[in-house]
Write a protein that binds this DNA or RNA. Sequence first.
DNA 1: CGCAAGGTTGAATCGAGTCAATACATGTGG
DNA 2: CCACATGTATTGACTCGATTCAACCTTGCG
Lengths: 248, 248
Amino acid sequence: MAHHDLQAVSQQCGDCPIRHRAVCSRCEADELARLEQIKYYRSYEAGQTVIWSGDRMDFVASVVTGIATLTQTMEDGRRQMVGLLLPSDFVGRPGRATAAYDVTATTDLVMCCFRKKPFEEMMQTTPHVAQRLLEMTLDELDAAREWMLLLGRKTAREKIASLLAIIARRDAALKPKSAKGGIVFDLPLTREEMADYLGLTLETVSRQISALKRDGVITLEGKRHVIVPDFDRLMEQTGDDSDGGYLN
Amino acid sequence: MAHHDLQAVSQQCGDCPIRHRAVCSRCEADELARLEQIKYYRSYEAGQTVIWSGDRMDFVASVVTGIATLTQTMEDGRRQMVGLLLPSDFVGRPGRATAAYDVTATTDLVMCCFRKKPFEEMMQTTPHVAQRLLEMTLDELDAAREWMLLLGRKTAREKIASLLAIIARRDAALKPKSAKGGIVFDLPLTREEMADYLGLTLETVSRQISALKRDGVITLEGKRHVIVPDFDRLMEQTGDDSDGGYLN
DNA sequence: CGCAAGGTTGAATCGAGTCAATACATGTGG
DNA sequence: CCACATGTATTGACTCGATTCAACCTTGCG
């Protein structure tokens, strides 16, 4: 595989791409200076495992670029994704020695890691890190509960539509606002990963994507590139309230 | 209905039954005094709705006694429980004006409510409340993720067995340790509530409970009183790892 | 090229849902 | 006290959506 320039990320918190959203977003200059001292970057290639559930974990981290997943696995191999980690999301739990879930890089990934011991000390002494972490954890809890509704009560078609809507919405928020012609994005997950996320099999995922395509709700270019001509039309397929009240 | 003596709960934090586990558990005497000033108790009868999703919510609260549920509902009536609130659990989100979920009392319920505005101020000024709330929220997030595995990947029988195991484990932790003869407890939920919790229909819940009874995994006395003669036997039915590593 | 990984599609199966009848306990009012 | 309504639970018969198993397609790469 070609040479990866993953380390080409600023080592300076000041111009870090996730500076304003991550666990450090509330920090003052002096707090940032302390964080700089205990941080280091790590890169992973797409497909690599970051940590296995049960492994000792001597750091916590923020995703800087790329996408990672949290998954749980049963003995017989059944897998359920329980978190999708995007840039600025936090990994690890202060006060816990071992990882509770498998963490895997689904794309090339850069993480900003903090040594656990000093990070925990900072949590005690400076309020801004802990405050932000609480806020982020509450957001994650809301997302998890939204996901519980999806897993417990939605049909396969609704699950797929919901996932597409979430990815589309996130992409739309980042991009400068593409043409009205429709929302366009790339799926960051394989069919199997989508299945693990949605509590389905990969065959069902494939079938339902084909069905949405057949019904004109989406268009595909290749396997991963999705065009949503009418976002409201997609939302109708999710089973959610029309106003899509994801954020308060 | 007979007169309820629900207010017969100490108004003094010092001898509150959840003093050592709730959001206030880390507080010093002076902090407790501040909390006392902004707190008030509210009682609800079994079946009553505490708050509707979307309603304005001018307090946060701890469950003192009884059990409440958090549920999400889709327009067409499909319901999914997303949280089960036991004594010491926290309700509400600082920094949010409206409730995100329906909260319902499934048993008679007493809550210790804090006026939201002053509680949020305390979160800023005293670290102990925020620290404990972060810890509790992280625990809830772990529980939610455990539940996502159940909802997404377990069979109906495994779901029922898992729920029974959770209730049994919780009860065993509270009780002085009943006879080795087996664990005994009462189901705090109706069949329908169990179904909403597990992402099933109430008929399937009923059938699977009957099946577990038929197979000798549990014994029923009446509809709600459960006897588990062999806890390991029950655990085998849950699909989880044998060592049942729920707590680190 | 030829293989591997990812993806699609079909046919058969099965687990859980749906609809419906019945049981059982509790409570109410005549 | 009985008749009746109500809420909760059980059970059966049938249906249907998703899984399983399998074949096949597509793409990229050593």
